[in-house]
C-alpha cells in the first residue's frame, strides 16, 4: 500500500481533561468522534467550530501530539501511537501541520531557515548542501516569497504573513499526503489571508494533498470549498459538501453560525435581532482550568 492510498481514520475518539470546578471533575473536549480523511482522491475537508468546540484538540490528536482518552486514530489501518519505526517514519512524513500562530511557531533564537533545514535533514530530502539550498529557494518561490528576503532572517524581522508562508513552503518541500492546518489564517490580515488560502488550495490540487482545514470562520470555509464538518461542544453535528451545508443547513447550530457571520456589505445588514440568551448558551463556558491530559486515567 503506497502512502497515497493510506487513510487517516478516527474511531470513537474521546478526549477528556481534568477540570477543577466542573461537576464531574472532567471536561470532555471531544466526544466519541469518528471520521475518515481519504488520501485518494485528494480533497479539502474543513472542520469549523467556535472556540472550545474541540477542533484544535482533534488536530493535535491526529498529529500524534496528544493521546486521546479513548478511541483510536489509525493511519493506513494502524494505530498511530503503536507504529513500528518504519511505519512511524511514513506517518510523520505524510501527516504534516500548519499551525495557527505565525509568531510562536518559530523558535526566536534561530534564523527562519532552520525550520526548512530541519525538515530536509530529518526527512532525508537530500544530503547535498547545494541541493538543499535549491529546494528551499524553490519552495519559497512557490509560496510567493523572495528567498533573498527571507533566508538568513530572524523570525521577528518578518511579518506574520511571511512567516506563515514559510510554513507553507515547508509543506511544499515535504509534499505530505495530509496537511492538518489548524486555524492557519486566523492571525493574518485579510489580503495575506486570501493569498495564503489560494496557495493552500493550489497545493492541494497540484500535489494531491488531502487537507484538513480547521477554522472558526465560515467565509473561509466557503472560500476553500470541498467538504465541511461543523463541530460544537466536542461533537460533529453536520457534515457534507460545502455548498450544500452552507445553502441548506440542517442543524440549528449551523444555521445560527451562518446567521452570525457579518456580511461585508452594508446593504445586507441584519434586520432581525439575535436572541442574546440563546447565543450565550452556545458560547463556550468560561474557561475551566484544565490539567495535563496525560494524567487522565484511561477507562
Amino acid at each position: 500500500m503506497s502512502a497515497r492510498t493510506k487513510d487517516i481514520e478516527l474511531h470513537d475518539v474521546e478526549q477528556r481533561f481534568h477540570a477543577r470546578g466542573s461537576a464531574t471533575g472532567f471536561l470532555t473536549a471531544v466526544h466519541e468522534t469518528s471520521f475518515t480523511l481519504r488520501s485518494d482522491p485528494p480533497h479539502i475537508v474543513s472542520l469549523v467550530g467556535q472556540s472550545g468546540s474541540g477542533k484544535s484538540t482533534i488536530a493535535r490528536i491526529i498529529l500524534g501530539l496528544q493521546r486521546p482518552t479513548s478511541g483510536t486514530v489509525t493511519y493506513g489501518g494502524k494505530d498511530i501511537f503503536k507504529l513500528s519505526r518504519a511505519e512511524y517514519d511514513d506517518y510523520r512524513r505524510n501527516v504534516q501541520p500548519v499551525f495557527q500562530d505565525p509568531y510562536a511557531i518559530f523558535n526566536p533564537v534561530y534564523r527562519v531557515d532552520r525550520v526548512l533545514r530541519t525538515a530536509i535533514k530529518k526527512f532525508g530530502l537530500t544530503k547535498s548542501k547545494a541541493r538543499a539550498q535549491e529546494l528551499m529557494e524553490e519552495s519559497l518561490r512557490a509560496v510567493k516569497l523572495d528567498p533573498a528576503q527571507v533566508l538568513g532572517r530572524y523570525p521577528h524581522q518578518l511579518s506574520g504573513g511571511q512567516r506563515q508562508r514559510i510554513m507553507l513552503a515547508r509543506v511544499h518541500m515535504l509534499r505530505p499526503a495530509f496537511i492538518i492546518a489548524d486555524e492557519p489564517v486566523s492571525m493574518l490580515d485579510a489580503q495575506v489571508r486570501k493569498l495564503f488560502l489560494d496557495i493552500l488550495v493550489d497545493f492541494q490540487r497540484a500535489y494531491g494533498m488531502t487537507t484538513l482545514f480547521i477554522t472558526h470562520d465560515l467565509s473561509t470555509v466557503y472560500y476553500v470549498g470541498g467538504d465541511v464538518m461543523v463541530i460544537t461542544k466536542g461533537r460533529v453535528v453536520e457534515r457534507g459538501p460545502v455548498a450544500q451545508v452552507m445553502h441548506t443547513p440542517s442543524h440549528s447550530y449551523t444555521k445560527m453560525l451562518l446567521a452570525s457571520v457579518p456580511q461585508p456589505d452594508p446593504d445586507k445588514r441584519w434586520t432581525d435581532r439575535i436572541d442574546i440568551e440563546e447565543a450565550d448558551r452556545e458560547e463556550a463556558a468560561p474557561e475551566v482550568p484544565t490539567s495535563d491530559p496525560a494524567r487522565v486515567p484511561r477507562p
Binding site: A142, D202, F203, L218, S219, Y222, Y223, G225, Q263, D265
Partner: peptide, 24 residues
C-alpha cells in the same frame, strides 16, 4: 478596493472559478 475585494464572502465561490492558476 483591495481591502474589500480580499474578504471571502459566503455565496461567492471562487473555487468554481477555473481561471485561478494552479501552481505547478
Amino acid at each position: 478596493r483591495s481591502l474589500i475585494e480580499s474578504i471571502p464572502r459566503i455565496g461567492e465561490a471562487p473555487w468554481r472559478d477555473e481561471k485561478r492558476s494552479p501552481v505547478a
